[in-house]
Write a protein that binds this DNA or RNA. Sequence first.
DNA 1: ATGTCGAATTCTATTCGA
Length: 260
Amino acid sequence: MKIATWNINGVKARIDTALAWIKEASPDIACLQEIKSVDEGFPTSAFEDLGYNVATHGQKGFNGVALLSKLPFDEVNRGLPGDDADEHARFIEGVFSVESGALRVVSLYLPNGNPIDTPKFPYKLAWMERLRVWAAERLTYEEPLVLAGDYNVIAEPRDAKDPSLWLNDALYQPETRKAFRAIETLGLTDALRATTDEDGLYTFWDYQAGAFQKNNGIRIDHLLLSPQAADRLVSVGIDKHVRGWDKPSDHVPVHVELRI
DNA sequence: ATGTCGAATTCTATTCGA
């Protein structure tokens, strides 16, 4: 089973690109972030026409996440628990029936957190702690679980072309990296790093200053796997070529193949 | 020289968030 994650940076502005990628990659489940659309504005029928079931958690203007799935949804849960005052649409969980039982897949858009001297940074860290608590609870189910999305975290120096450029950025603060490790050390596996120690592997390149042409990128889109999912991991890929298409998102899709 | 982009409102221009 192929499960992919992609921050598309606006589903309405990117619909042609999104459909072209779906046709090419044919993921069984796709996790989208930054749909920048309310649920009613999401181009659901365009994806349904390609054989997908669609679940969205959107809001006006920015944020917003979605799940596209060839499998029917048994259950959909919207929003990350832990703060009733948080109205950002950044989290959606789908539950699917597979031979072994349940498969859970989350599409998450972790807060950017910049600038770090504003409330945005503590909001990011608090969101990460809520995610840690949520993941700890889900891991007790001992099911295949895929936590996929734009984490807005540069976990290690090798995940940036030039780490020195990110020293004052929320994506690379020691507190950010520590909070990410605290999620991983619950027992989640970073799918890409389970398969390679290569550096130079990125998932985001800024639109500005010819970043893609210089390969001045960062790896911030991750798929974290529960033990039951990691045991089934076959391969991981980054669809880097999509960044070279017309009207690209600044992120590219990342995908795993699981023996499910 | 942050050199770009998408969305919303302030709407043939500016701001916000990334």
